[in-house]
């Protein structure tokens, strides 16, 4: 097909696609500050006030922290998820492909933030718990380590995960038309790590009194950790989405058409 001058002129007028990295970078900086700050707090307050749960200082420096976490996290959860729902796009059948691409890329970039948060819960603060158990005799479910792992790191990625899930079903037509089981697993599987704490604490209270990390009562965490493999399912769905979406904004020479 012959290309007229007008069409060439139009193609030139189309602005190049820009990745909006700001939310991702900001998100990661905020998380780094939260998790780094928490780690600093541990170094400062765990040794002086965190060794004996019956000490009033433990209440002051640790239980206060715990309650603050709970209140802030529940508020943030409803704020973020509520915001995503209340400000939803009510006309998803009518989104311009270019806008859709922008949203999709933003969403994928925020998955990096989700994974970053999951790293702190699944690796950094999780393994650290094994070592704190070697400094004290277990005397409460709310140790300086648990307060950061179960009641901070886990809720943080849960908040991000649910927010992203709601972003997907309210702004990305592909994920709104039908609910992706893989995406549900990627969000809800890691979420289940938190309720699994119930099993963990039950086990430590009534079943296995000793601390080694490989005890069966920790395997609930392992099971729900596996669900992150479903990211591959999400990735494949993103590929299908790309195949559907990108040809609407790109021609076969790789130029933007809208």
């Amino acid at each position: 097909m012959a290309v007229t001058h007008d069409e060439v002129g139009q193609a030139k007028a189309i602005a190049p696609f820009k990745f909006n990295l700001k939310p991702m970078i900001m998100g990661m900086i905020v998380l780094a500050i939260i998790f780094g700050g928490a780690r600093w707090y541990q170094q400062w307050a765990a040794w002086d006030y965190g060794l004996d749960a019956t000490d009033p200082m433990f209440d002051k420096y640790w239980m206060t922290f715990f309650w603050a976490e709970i209140v802030i996290e529940i508020s943030l959860f409803f704020t973020f998820v509520g915001y995503m729902w209340l400000t939803r796009d009510k006309h998803l059948n009518n989104v311009k492909p270019r806008e859709e691409l922008r949203r999709l890329m933003l969403w994928v970039s925020m998955l990096v933030v989700y994974a970053f948060a999951f790293y702190f819960a699944g690796s950094f603060y999780a393994e650290q718990d094994a070592t704190w158990h070697q400094t004290v005799v277990r005397d409460t479910s709310f140790t300086p380590s648990h307060i950061m792992l179960f009641y901070m790191s886990m809720p943080v990625f849960i908040i991000i995960g649910f927010t992203l899930f709601f972003y997907a079903i309210t702004r990305l037509p592909f994920f709104a038309r039908k609910i992706s089981i893989a995406l549900v697993l990627v969000v809800c599987g890691p979420f289940m790590l938190l309720p699994t704490v119930g099993y963990n604490e039950w086990g430590h209270a009534f079943w296995l009194m000793e601390e080694y990390f490989t005890v069966p009562l920790h395997w609930g965490f392992v099971f729900f950790g596996w669900t992150i493999i479903a990211l591959s399912g999400v990735l494949i769905q993103v590929m299908k989405y790309m195949v559907e979406l990108l040809p609407k904004v790109l021609n076969e020479k790789g130029e933007l058409t809208s």
Binding site: A53, F142, E201
Partner: peptide
């Protein structure tokens, strides 16, 4: 939710560790 957590706290604090 807070109440549930509180119940956990009081229940579990008394059930662990050296003095506990």
């Amino acid at each position: 939710v807070l109440l549930m957590v509180l119940m956990c706290v009081t229940g579990l604090v008394l059930a662990h560790g050296e003095r506990n």
